[in-house]
């Protein structure tokens, strides 16, 4: 059977948890013998400022994890992983001033709707929130920004230090991808 290699782009501001998430997921990779080659392949990315990691699911199936800085001036890096993306995860650090402009740029550049890329907005550092209202307020602002792009993506809390929480994101992206096939036939679009 042929090899399958898919890519996940993890985009976000400094401190949003990209490095941590990629480390958490890569470290549980069951094919430890591959660790060295993964580092080798990743080198070309790390030298230009992309976090690279990989989750090997079997001998011939792997998910590449690419951590990309959120600002528009890194567009060249975004382009390096844009083709054949399996999913886009935008990490936002709770209670940092949300960089709406950068979120706008990411959504414009990757254009997840037209390119049919499953999109999840991950809310990190949510453990620093004092109450639910604070979280709601932040989510309000993000969903408003998404709405301007006609996007209705899940906004979910994630703790990149936690394996289960990080894998939940992959599970959600997979569910989004799977359902788009069903959506084509079984549902009616609401205009």
């Amino acid at each position: 059977m042929s090899n399958i290699y898919k890519k996940l782009a993890v985009v976000g501001e400094v401190g949003s948890g990209k490095t941590q998430l990629i480390k958490t997921i890569s470290e549980i990779s069951p094919f430890a013998t591959e660790a060295k080659s993964s580092v080798d392949i990743g080198k070309e990315y790390t030298t230009v400022g992309i976090d690279y990691g990989r989750l090997s699911l079997s001998e011939d199936i792997a998910l590449g994890l690419y951590g990309l800085p959120g600002q528009k001036r890194f567009q060249l890096l975004w382009d390096m992983v844009r083709n054949g993306l399996w999913g886009l995860l935008v990490l936002t650090k709770f209670n940092d001033e949300l960089n709406v402009k950068s979120l706008d740029n990411i959504l414009e550049h990757f254009d997840p709707i037209n390119n049919q890329i499953p999109l999840v907005i991950g809310l990190t550092h949510i453990d620093t929130a004092e109450n639910d209202q604070e979280i709601d307020l932040f989510i309000d602002i993000i969903s408003y920004a998404l709405e301007q792009h006609g996007i209705n993506a899940p906004i979910v809390p994630v703790d990149p230090r936690d394996i289960e929480s990080s894998l939940m994101i992959l599970q959600l992206l997979d569910a989004l991808e799977q359902s788009s096939a069903i959506n084509m036939e079984a549902t009616q679009n609401v205009v």
């Binding site: 399958i4 989750l55 699911l57 199936i61 998910l63 399996w86 289960e164 992959l170 599970q171 799977q178």
Partner: peptide, 13 residues
């Protein structure tokens, strides 16, 4: 195959 492998991996995890 990819989705299935991911599902298996996550449930095993």
């Amino acid at each position: 195959r990819f989705s299935q492998a991911l599902k298996n991996f996550i449930s095993g995890q």
